[in-house]
């Protein structure tokens, strides 16, 4: 799941669109025998700024995550109901003047595995460079938020917490 942030003061006041150039999304799964990271670079995103706010949508196919083991990735696909719900989406809206600092707090609406979960005030670090923005942060997702059965290995289940680390680069379209 990718999430982008833009310096609200700079871009919200001017009608504009933002486009996701590149991203790295990494989910982390903990098990006593294994620590697993699944990585995707296939996210797509766009932001539309209106009078008083910017609306963002980011989406990534679940199949695009690679943990280094195709058997595990297929099991993850099955467990997260990826056959029926192949895309993870993240929506957020930033009000005008959301922040004047390098850290933006965003309320996220995430659709995953056929469920919708809300995360309030998730901090993201933003670095502006002209019309380019680099955004990074961690989404504190859990398996139970999306009503997913916890997978097991040798009858031991994985941890409920599956934080998602986000790094993304955006550019503004005029």
């Amino acid at each position: 799941m990718t999430f982008l942030l833009l310096s609200a003061l700079t871009l919200i006041q001017t009608p504009s669109q933002w486009v996701l150039d590149s991203s790295t999304l990494r989910f982390h799964v903990s098990h006593p025998l294994h620590q697993v990271d699944g990585v995707s670079h296939a996210a797509r995103g766009r932001g539309v700024c209106q009078a008083r706010s910017c609306v963002f949508l980011i989406a990534v196919p679940i199949k695009s995550f690679d943990s280094g083991d195709s058997n595990r990735d297929l099991h993850m696909l099955q467990t997260t109901r990826g056959g029926q719900f192949p895309i993870v989406t993240v929506r957020t809206q930033l009000p005008e003047g959301a922040t004047r600092s390098d850290t933006v707090y965003a309320d996220l609406e995430i659709e995953f595995a056929g469920q919708t979960a809300h995360y309030a005030r998730v901090p993201f670090h933003v670095v502006m460079d002209g019309d380019e923005a680099r955004v990074s942060g961690t989404i504190p997702a859990t398996i139970s938020d999306f009503k997913i059965d916890r997978p097991t290995l040798l009858t031991i289940p994985i941890k409920n917490e599956i934080p998602v680390y986000v790094e993304s680069t955006w550019h503004r379209e005029k």
Partner: peptide
Amino acid sequence: LLSLEDLGFSAAQTRGSAEEQARLDKRS
């Protein structure tokens, strides 16, 4: 305001398949 089509995803990419999910379930 924004949809998956706006991001360039086709309907085939975003449409789920109960048949594929059933195959994944059976495999698992």
